[in-house]
């Protein structure tokens, strides 16, 4: 039952998002106003430690579950696509004050109105899937 492993990692993720206050609408607002180092500290630490650990896993050719090595399949570079899609996401992120992970964690915290936001996100994803052939990638 591999599912239980991901369930446990998920619990740790939910606890981390809550105790880090990254699920706070107000923290996101504060971050985009550059009035606190809090969110930058979280993301910065995660990226520095993450980059070191991923690099070490690659250097020492550590095998992951399934027997493969740590790989990353890069997206084709398309500056316009990355900037435009990122901007669309950022507009929504600052408006509802939550990115996808925190949306689910907020629901667990008892803020059930976030379900309306999740419904909007599912509809946005569906819309993308229906028009993606017409967008530059």
């Amino acid at each position: 039952m591999k599912g239980i492993i991901f369930f446990l990692i998920g619990i740790f993720f939910g606890i981390t998002m809550t105790k880090s206050e990254a699920i706070s609408w107000f923290r996101i607002y504060e971050m985009f106003r550059f009035e606190s180092f809090h969110m930058y500290g979280i993301i910065g630490t995660a990226v520095v430690i993450g980059a070191i650990s991923m690099t070490l896993l690659k250097i020492f050719k550590v095998k992951v579950a399934g027997g493969g090595l740590v790989t990353y399949s890069p997206l084709p570079l398309n500056i316009k696509r990355h900037l435009i899609s990122g901007t669309i996401f950022g507009l929504g992120w600052a408006l509802v004050g939550a990115c996808p992970g925190p949306m689910f964690v907020l629901a667990g915290n008892g803020y059930f109105f976030i379900i309306v936001v999740i419904a909007g996100a599912v509809f946005g994803t569906y819309t993308y899937g229906m028009v993606r052939d017409k967008l530059p990638h």
Partner: peptide
Amino acid sequence: GGFLVGFGSRYA
């Protein structure tokens, strides 16, 4: 807002 996050993240 949810729509922008959903559309944007999938496009990104």
